[in-house]
């Protein structure tokens, strides 16, 4: 038993070192912009860059739009399938897994072929149309995570009985979704939202190929032309992702507790 624990800790330590060393090295390198001293110069340079502010703001807005559309799409769909079409759940699970199998580059080329300026729906013909297309792309990329988060939240409550209880009290579908279902899966939705946020902030392929001014292509551009700033940017991107993960952990504590059958 004791030997097993030692082995466990050893493998954990090797894994942690493999993960932490590059991060520490990157962070250390990002602080060495001024010769002979550790400073935050690279960070100040990045933060003061108008393109950083522009691309970061753009990606944050895209992330918020993606989350809003994703929630509106996924929550009613997952709810309805759980309530009325339980036999279709495996199909939906498969469909929501497809973005993990199909590379984003294939998806975005498909988009460009379908929605180019000479197509029946020329979304790429305007900046707003392309933004919309990019947002739909992000919704697809985040679908495996958002759907699973929401479905797990729905599994924790008795969807059918709560729905019937609300119906018997006079509630219609919108009231049931807004006041009974959504508040009870809010923490699950938030978890999905934070993962979506992290995905959108770091996404490169779709934004680059649709030529939108987002944070991912900016990181790539900076990496190709500067030395210390890309390292600072990588640390910032990590901090955002980890911040999102910490928020998921934090909000999970506020999930509504299902009443016990009997005390």
């Amino acid at each position: 038993m004791k030997i097993n624990r030692i082995w466990s800790w050893l493998f954990f330590g090797i894994g942690a070192l493999y993960f932490i060393f590059p991060l520490v090295s990157t962070a250390e390198f990002s602080l060495k912009m001024r010769r002979g001293a550790y400073t935050l110069d690279a960070y100040w340079t990045v933060l003061a860059d108008p393109r950083f502010q522009q691309t970061f703001t753009y990606s944050v807005l895209m992330a918020l739009a993606t989350i809003a559309f994703g929630v509106l799409l996924v929550v009613p769909t997952a709810y309805w399938v759980r309530l009325k079409l339980p036999r279709w759940r495996p199909v939906l699970e498969f469909v929501t897994l497809l973005p993990l199998i199909i590379p984003p580059i294939v998806i975005v080329f498909g988009y460009i072929r379908l929605y180019n300026t000479s197509s029946w729906l020329p979304l790429t013909g305007s900046a707003m149309g392309t933004n919309l297309l990019l947002m739909f792309g992000y919704v697809i990329l985040s679908l495996p995570y958002m759907y699973r988060a929401v479905d797990t939240g729905l599994r924790a409550i008795d969807v059918a009985t709560l729905t019937e209880a609300a119906q018997s009290l006079g509630a219609g579908w919108i009231t049931i979704l807004a006041r009974v279902i959504l508040p009870n899966v809010a923490v699950a939705v938030l978890s999905g939202a934070f993962i979506t946020f992290a995905i959108v902030i770091g996404e490169f392929v779709m934004a680059a190929l649709l030529n939108r001014p987002s944070f991912g292509p900016y990181m790539q551009l900076l990496g190709a032309n500067r030395a210390y700033e890309p390292a600072a940017l990588a640390v910032i991107a990590f901090a955002i992702t980890w911040g999102c993960m910490a928020l998921i952990q934090f909000v999970s504590k506020f999930a509504p507790r299902a009443p016990g059958a009997q005390h």
Partner: peptide, 9 residues
Amino acid sequence: FQAYALFPN
């Protein structure tokens, strides 16, 4: 209902 079905939130 048998399962009470109170809204947990």
